[in-house]
Amino acid sequence: RLIESLSQMLSMGFSDEGGWLTRLLQTKNYDIGAALDTIQ
């Protein structure tokens, strides 16, 4: 599930440099909407 969510976020133009996006998705239970809300 992480790989699916991460690949979708990467395709939106986000980077996972340093693993920050992986950690964010894990804390949000791989919910892309919740991750995007946090980023904004």
Rank of each mutant, 00 (worst) to 15 (best):
T22W: 05
L36H: 03
E4V: 11
D31W: 08
S15C: 11
E17R: 05
L6T: 00
K28G: 08
A34Q: 12
L25T: 02
T38G: 07
Q40A: 13
M9Y: 03
I39D: 03
L36T: 03
S5Y: 10
G33M: 14
I32L: 07
Q40T: 13
L36R: 02
D16T: 03
K28A: 12
Y30E: 04
D37L: 11
G33A: 15
Y30W: 10
Q26W: 05
L25K: 00
A35M: 05
Q26L: 11
M9A: 06
E4L: 09
S7P: 01
M9D: 02
D31P: 05
R23S: 10
I32D: 03
D31F: 05
E4A: 12
D16L: 00
S11P: 04
M12T: 06
I32F: 07
M12R: 06
M9G: 01
W20L: 04
K28W: 10
M12V: 05
Q40F: 14
I39E: 00
R23C: 13
D37N: 11
S11M: 13
A35K: 02
T27W: 12
M12L: 10
S5R: 05
Q40P: 07
S7V: 11
L36N: 02
N29A: 10
I3E: 15
W20G: 02
S5V: 14
Q8V: 14
L24V: 06
K28I: 14
Q26A: 10
A34K: 09
I39N: 01
D37E: 15
D31A: 02
L6E: 00
G18N: 12
L25M: 02
K28Q: 11
A34H: 05
S15V: 11
G13H: 05
Q26R: 10
I32K: 04
T27H: 11
G19M: 04
A34L: 13
R1M: 12
D31I: 07
F14G: 03
M9L: 13
I3K: 14
L36P: 03
R23L: 11
I32S: 04
Y30P: 04
D37M: 09
T22H: 03
A34E: 10
D31N: 07
E4P: 07
K28V: 15
Q8F: 11
A34N: 09
L10A: 11
L36Y: 06
N29L: 08
Q26D: 07
G18H: 09
S11W: 03
L6Q: 01
L10G: 06
K28L: 15
L24F: 02
F14A: 02
L10Q: 11
L10S: 08
Y30A: 08
D31L: 06
T22F: 00
T22K: 03
